[in-house]
Computed example of a mutant assay.
Amino acid sequence: MPMKQVNLTITFDEEKLSALKRYMGKKELDLDREMTDALVKLYEKYVPAPVREYIDESDVSAAAPSKSRRSPRAAAPKPDQEPEVIQ
């Protein structure tokens, strides 16, 4: 299970944002992707490595038990395959 995502709201000059989007669009760049990349870089710069590792391990640990809780079931046939007939 991925970590819970949040939305951020920031204030920025409307005319500057419009120009930024226009010129990024000319280079086929996505503002949301660039902002996310910038936040990741800030996170890596300011959050100490041991804390980042702890958070990553917590995320992996939280996802692992959910897999073990699943009950074993027969695999469903793939759409392009005929179901196996047992006689």
Rank of each mutant, 00 (worst) to 15 (best):
T9P: 15
V85A: 07
M3L: 07
Q87T: 11
E44T: 07
L39H: 07
K45A: 08
V85R: 06
P48Y: 00
E44K: 10
D80Q: 13
D13P: 11
P50R: 02
F12E: 01
L20N: 00
S71N: 07
Y54F: 08
K16H: 03
P72Q: 06
E34P: 15
I10N: 01
K16V: 00
E84M: 02
I55N: 03
T36N: 08
A64T: 11
E44Q: 10
K4F: 04
V6F: 12
Q81L: 12
Q5Y: 03
V47F: 03
K67P: 12
R69E: 14
Q87F: 14
A63I: 04
Y54V: 06
R33W: 12
D37M: 12
N7C: 07
Q87C: 01
E15H: 00
K78E: 06
A38N: 05
A75Q: 09
Y23H: 03
E82P: 10
A75K: 09
E44W: 05
Q81P: 11
A63P: 10
K16A: 06
K21F: 12
V51H: 14
R22V: 01
L39C: 13
A62R: 09
Q81A: 05
Y23E: 00
M24V: 03
Y23M: 00
Q81F: 12
L31G: 14
F12C: 08
Y46N: 03
I86N: 04
Q5A: 13
T36F: 14
A49T: 13
D37T: 09
D13M: 06
Y43M: 09
Q81S: 06
R52P: 15
R70V: 15
K4E: 01
L8K: 10
E15Y: 00
T9V: 10
E15A: 13
E44I: 08
V47T: 05
I55D: 07
V40P: 04
R70L: 14
S66V: 13
L42W: 07
E57S: 10
A74E: 11
M24Q: 00
Y46T: 09
T9K: 09
D80H: 15
P2K: 01
N7V: 11
F12H: 07
P48M: 02
M35Y: 13
P50M: 01
L29M: 15
S61H: 01
L20G: 01
T11A: 02
S18R: 02
V85K: 07
D13Y: 05
M1T: 14
P48G: 00
V60T: 09
R22C: 00
E84Y: 08
E15C: 06
Y43E: 06
P65G: 03
M3F: 10
E44G: 05
L29D: 02
P79V: 02
P72V: 10
I55L: 07
S66H: 13
E53V: 09
I10G: 04
A64C: 12
